[in-house]
Design a protein around this nucleic acid. Structure first.
Length: 515
DNA sequence: GTCGACACAAAGTG
DNA sequence: TCACTTTGTGTCGA
């Protein structure tokens, strides 16, 4: 995974790395607000009925591109994002839809504190945005095993005191560890059975022809709580002058460039396995949780070779991972109106959550849930995904959607895709240009000169990686200004409710951070 | 029913 | 306009 692609390969500027070069930008960019949808797009239906307008071939859903591909079949293409955006932004009356599976509350595995004389306790907050790939089908968060999704991770410590040593005291232990750094990683587990982990795999743009890795821990620096980022400023914020690669937040005027990036995006992630019993109504549907983990580097204090200790994590809402092609589900899709499987819309869905997670229809208002969660997202990572889209920053801790909205969502037949990214923590819109060009997102960090964030993995052969990269990896770029990103999401919604391309979100700068 | 592999098609970029 | 790239997804065989 991440490791697979050693930083080395990307050294230099993260921005350009990888294929990005050659074609790098291409998709990433977002459609401009004014973008025109192709005819097809224009009609691309969010609803099944409209799918496949004309082609013999099914259109695929483009998860990423906002405008471009829609996929009739797959939800991915549908853009519902705007709605959510509005929500977040307080758009009234909108039927906002959550674009992405929210994360549940944070589970701490110990206590962090500054080891100075004050011994100040530290509050940890993990932000995770599951970007693209997911949609709500029958009131359940769903994705296809074969489709990519990405997860933008960051964390913050409150209070944030620079240059002050930190200690971590694991729950149940009396022996605190000195913390030399932090890293984040994502994993997956079966709902209701944390011990049953599900392997995640990360691809390069070359997909089967390139190396496949597992997402690994990526060193990150804390993100300044409540830092306000102006979208535009981000353009100039990149430490390396590359307009954005991994994002380095300069909180409180303290540059962190020298250290690890403050955010990392795990891209092109897929579940290795699909959930069991998909589509069988009578059988017990299995669910997975995506887990965003924060790890502390305690050196050799544990005695072993592994310097990492898990500090905290957040689990996503439970989700279904379909193992077959969209067409298969399309045909068998049932109408799940307001209530999902088993009338899930309410309790059922959420039932699986161990940590208070809610299903698509259930959204908690707690701060930890989605911090910015409902953004307007685009689904397109590339295009909007990254940077652009995430305006979530500092959005709010408000519930992503109201019951009404949920209902609107669930009533839709078939699935709807919420391409937009959900932001969970605060993200800086500024970064629209993330130069991420790594094969695996991890690479980004590596790129940073700071050397701060390096992925720890070592599995892949760097040389291979490099070659792969040279072909371009594009991906995550924050493109275009955040503002535009919102355009384009027409797809996906069953109706136009509240989803208009036009809206631009106000600069996040004024918003608050979730942490 | 699930998964891996192969292949095709769509859409963006240069 | 074309070649290339990336990604969704249909299909087949195990």
């Amino acid at each position: 995974m991440a490791h697979s692609f050693p930083p080395v390969a990307y050294s230099g500027s993260s921005s350009t790395a990888g294929q990005g070069m050659a074609h790098g930008h291409r998709s990433t960019t977002l459609p401009h607000p004014g973008t025109n949808l192709s005819t097809r797009e224009a009609y691309a239906p969010a609803t099944p009925a409209f799918r496949r307008p004309d082609h013999h071939h099914i259109q695929r859903s483009p998860p990423f591109s906002n405008l471009r591909r829609h996929n009739p079949l797959s939800p991915t293409s549908t853009p519902a994002a705007y709605g959510s955006l509005k929500m977040d932004t307080g758009y009234p009356g909108s039927k906002n839809q959550p674009s992405i599976p929210p994360l549940g509350s944070l589970t701490s595995l110990g206590h962090l504190s500054y080891s100075d004389s004050s011994a100040t306790q530290i509050k940890v907050d993990i932000s995770g945005v599951i970007d693209k790939g997911f949609f709500v089908a029958e009131n359940e968060w769903t994705c296809y095993r074969r489709n990519y999704f990405s997860c933008v991770c960051s964390f913050s410590l409150t209070p944030m005191i620079h240059n002050s040593p930190i200690q971590f005291l694991p729950t149940g232990s009396t022996h605190p560890f000195n913390v030399y750094g932090f890293a984040m990683c994502i994993s997956a587990a079966v709902s209701d059975n944390d011990n049953h982990t599900i392997e995640l795999v990360q691809h390069t743009p070359k997909r089967d022809k390139g190396p496949i890795a597992k997402p690994e821990k990526v060193r990150l620096s804390q993100k300044p709580p409540q830092a306000s980022h102006h979208p535009l400023t981000s353009l100039y914020a990149a430490p390396d002058g590359s307009l954005g690669s991994s994002r380095y937040d300069q909180g409180f005027g303290q540059p962190q460039q020298s250290s690890a990036p403050t955010e990392h995006t795990f891209e092109r992630i897929q579940f290795k396995q699909a959930t069991a019993n998909n589509g069988k109504r009578r059988a017990a549907q299995q669910y997975y949780h995506l887990i965003v983990e924060l790890w502390a580097d305690v050196g050799q204090q544990q005695g072993g070779s592994d310097p990492w200790v898990k500090v905290a994590y957040r689990k996503s809402a439970k989700m279904i991972v379909r193992g077959r092609s969209p067409g298969h589900y399309q045909s068998e899709r049932r109408e799940s109106s307001s209530s999902g499987p088993g009338g899930s819309s309410g309790s059922n869905i959420g039932s699986g959550y161990s940590s208070g997670m809610l299903g698509p229809g259930e959204y908690s208002t707690g701060p930890s849930m989605m911090g910015g969660g409902g953004y307007a997202q685009h689904y397109d990572t590339r295009s909007s995904g990254y940077g652009g889209t995430r305006h979530h920053h500092e959005l709010t801790m408000e519930p992503m959607i109201s019951a009404e909205e949920v209902k609107a969502i669930t009533d839709t037949k078939g699935y709807q895709y919420y391409p937009a990214t959900i932001y969970e923590g605060e993200h800086d819109p500024r970064q629209h240009h993330h130069p991420q060009v790594e094969l695996f997102s991890h690479a980004r960090q590596d790129v940073s000169e700071s050397g701060g964030a390096h992925s720890m993995s070592t599995a892949f052969d760097p040389t291979k990686v490099k070659s792969e990269m040279e072909h371009g990896l594009p991906s995550l770029l924050y493109h275009g200004g955040p503002y535009y990103q919102r355009c384009g999401r027409f797809e996906g919604k069953p109706t136009s409710n509240g989803q208009y391309p036009t809206t631009l979100i106000p600069p996040p700068s004024s918003t608050m951070s979730m942490t």
